[in-house]
Nucleic acid binder design. Structure first.
Length: 672
DNA sequence: AGCACGCCGACT
DNA sequence: GTCGGCGTGCTC
């Protein structure tokens, strides 16, 4: 390759991050800027560079333009500048680097979430025309809280845990949205009027639609950008470019709405990041390095001094911890709004509904149906379902205790719901059949049953597959929705029946309680003022925190438990998965680090069509927040060393994809 | 990941 | 002699 001597001319060196998931390449490489490209090279532009040979080209991003290089060797020249768009803002780079370091991962993997794939046509249009950005003229106070409190926090870059106001509200256009969405929109509008951008992150697109509707009522369309994964890449890229400072138009504050990855958006003059319902598992990034949007928001708050707001009807244990550390300030609605929630026992069901609705809930629903629409929340027809003999339909029973057999997941052995024994060689007691059939009571079945129980009623089903976003709220209408798929009813529901509480609680997970409370609270928040919410068949502290609308009390109690057990978020965890020697090496490397303890290594159950030969083990490391950085860098070092030594199997052998030698996952919510 | 470099066995 | 096998190591 034509080597260029280390140059000392002004701005002649480009520091480039190579777009690669390889840990060995997760650092900056210096390239000489050929005079022909000097005008086009700037921090944040996409480039192509030669890697080791002229023929091997890689994509990269210019991080910095410098005068000299530390590299003692001849710098290779930049191959080309892909486009003049500066897609990586300096502050987003700083964020990505910090997030990657914290998660023991690579910055390129983080940037994949921050920068959409390039679309040439979209980019050309943007460069030619720019984006018409309008700023709302009228400031709206953030209503329903102590006047000026939230506005002041936004201005000073404060950190808030905001209890959302339950209920629904009608927007000037006529649409009804959750009251929480209006709060976020008002806060965001206030932020742009102050000359700063706002990022609003929501779990899914149905939440996003509500926020967008609320924003449409308060701000001109040009002030809002939507960056969700549901759009085509071209649409996302167009919205993304719209947030960037335009070469001619300059940068204007925006309101940027999206799902978990919107926390990386290139917001000009960032003033506010708000997350709604941060306990929703959708905020946990499933791609390496698995950074949670909540953590990213907190890092960005620290780096950029913007305000951060965690809003919702429930309180995640993580946010509760931050409140107790006085890192977040708690803000409650003023005046307080409390839905009317009544718990009821599961027994004494009415006859015609398939035995599902207790009489108290039945009476409530019957009465409410004359007034308006009633919401019935049911569990998802998931895997906590009962089993029956495939041949004769007889319910499958445990051979030891005659309890009902269940499936915990798609590929688990059936087990007894009472004694937990695995049902290995099960045979039907009636017909000696050996195969199962799942008996689920999904939303459709429930709808059918309820239709019979409430004659003359229109039944609308909303579930994950066919979600309904809005219903008109007319009387004699029953909405059967799986948890999380509840439509917004005009003027709010006349009653909300939370039907499958008991079944939802059967899932085994560290945070079933938190999840259930979140599902129930979000449904209860859709009720009309004064309309009853009936929680069926659940008692205890969980039911109490819902009926008193004091979800924070449950979170506080949970945190006490987690502290006692040494579970997150009382401390942090890292899971290390790989073949036994690799995991061993990782644990040895942690020898000098003051971690709490190590659980395992234990064999990882092999799922899917993988060969059992590649048996993997996993160890879980527990440590205090203070040593997080040390743990992350240590584990990253091991990943790096192993990556260097990793070799593919001898040629000619079957071509299986080489599993990553070591997978490190920090703060995995599914752990333990 | 790729790709080149390097150090041992069969060859025109 | 040297062509080319694939184990090793690096990428400005």
């Amino acid at each position: 390759m034509p080597a260029v001597a280390s140059s000392t001319a002004r701005g002649s060196v480009a520091r480039v991050l190579i777009d690669s998931p390889l840990p060995q390449l997760d650092r900056l490489f210096d390239y000489a800027i050929p005079p022909a490209l000097a005008d086009a090279v700037a921090p944040g532009v996409r480039v192509t560079v030669a890697l080791r040979t002229e023929r091997r080209l890689a994509d990269g991003l210019v991080i910095e333009v410098a005068d000299t290089s530390e590299f003692d060797g001849a710098l290779a020249p930049l191959e080309a500048v892909v486009s003049p768009a500066r897609v990586l803002a300096p502050e987003v780079w700083a964020l990505a680097r910090r997030v990657a370091d914290r998660q023991a991962g690579g910055a390129s993997d983080v940037l994949r979430l921050a920068i959409p794939r390039r679309s040439v046509a979209v980019e050309r249009k943007w460069l030619e025309r720019g984006a018409a950005v309008e700023v709302p003229k009228l400031a709206h106070p953030v209503e329903g809280y102590e006047p000026g409190l939230i506005e002041a926090a936004i201005e000073r870059g404060g950190r808030l845990a905001l209890r959302s106001i339950p209920g629904v509200v009608q927007l000037p256009g006529g649409t009804w949205v959750g009251r929480w969405a209006l709060t976020l929109a008002q806060a965001a509008v206030r932020t742009v009027i102050d000359g700063k951008s706002a990022i609003l992150a929501v779990p899914d697109y149905r939440d996003q639609e509500q926020v967008e509707a609320a924003l449409a009522a308060l701000a001109p369309a040009g002030a809002v950008a939507s960056l969700d994964a549901r759009r085509t890449n071209a649409q996302r890229y167009a919205a993304f470019l719209g947030c960037l400072p335009h070469p001619e138009a300059g940068n204007t504050p925006r309101i940027i709405v999206g799902n978990r990855s919107v926390v990386y958006a290139p917001a000009a003059q960032l003033g506010l990041i708000a997350l709604y319902d941060d306990g929703d598992p959708l905020f946990a990034e499933p791609l390496a390095p698995y950074a949670h949007a909540r953590d990213v928001a907190l890092i960005r708050q620290e780096q950029q001094g913007c305000a951060v707001v965690f809003a919702g009807h429930t309180r995640s244990v993580e946010v509760q911890r931050l409140i107790e550390l006085q890192f977040l300030d708690e803000v409650v609605p003023a005046p307080r709004v409390t839905p009317k929630v009544v718990p009821t026992a599961a027994q004494q069901s009415a006859q015609r509904d398939g035995g599902r609705v207790p009489s108290a809930a039945f009476r409530t629903a019957t009465e409410a149906l004359t007034q308006g629409t009633v919401l019935v929340q049911v569990a998802r027809p998931g895997y906590v379902s009962l089993l029956a003999c495939q041949r004769c339909g007889q319910a499958a029973r445990c051979t030891h205790c005659a309890g009902p057999l269940q499936l915990a997941s798609s590929h688990a052995l059936p087990s007894c719901g009472w004694c937990g024994k695995l049902a290995g060689g099960w045979r039907c007691s009636e017909c000696n059949g050996t195969r199962f059939r799942m008996v689920t009571r999904g939303s459709a079945r429930t709808a059918e049953e309820l239709g019979r129980a409430f004659p003359g009623t229109r039944v609308i089903v909303s579930d994950g597959e066919r979600p309904v976003t809005h219903v008109d709220g007319e009387p004699r209408t029953l909405v059967v929705a799986t948890r999380g798929a509840e439509p917004v009813a005009a003027a709010g529901y006349a009653a909300v029946i939370l039907l499958d509480g008991e079944r939802m609680l059967q899932r085994e997970s560290l945070h079933v309680g938190d999840d259930c409370l979140r599902w129930w609270s979000n449904a209860a928040a859709l009720a009309a003022p004064g309309a009853p919410t009936v929680l069926v068949g659940v008692g205890g502290p969980l039911a109490q925190s819902l009926t008193l609308w004091q979800q924070h009390a449950y979170a506080a109690a949970q945190l006490v438990d987690r502290k006692a057990l040494g579970f997150p978020p009382a401390l942090r965890v890292a899971s290390v998965t790989g073949r036994a020697p690799a995991v061993q090496q990782a644990l040895q490397a942690l020898d000098g680090v003051p971690i709490r303890d190590v659980l395992g290594p234990t064999p990882v159950p092999v799922d899917g069509p993988h060969q059992a030969e590649e048996s993997l083990v996993r160890a879980v490391v527990r440590f205090d927040y203070g040593v997080g950085a040390q743990v992350a860098t240590t584990l990253r070092g091991v990943v790096l060393r192993l990556a260097a030594g990793a070799r593919r199997p001898p040629a000619g052998q079957k071509r299986r994809r080489p599993a990553p030698t070591l997978r490190v996952k920090l703060d995995d919510p599914e752990i333990l």
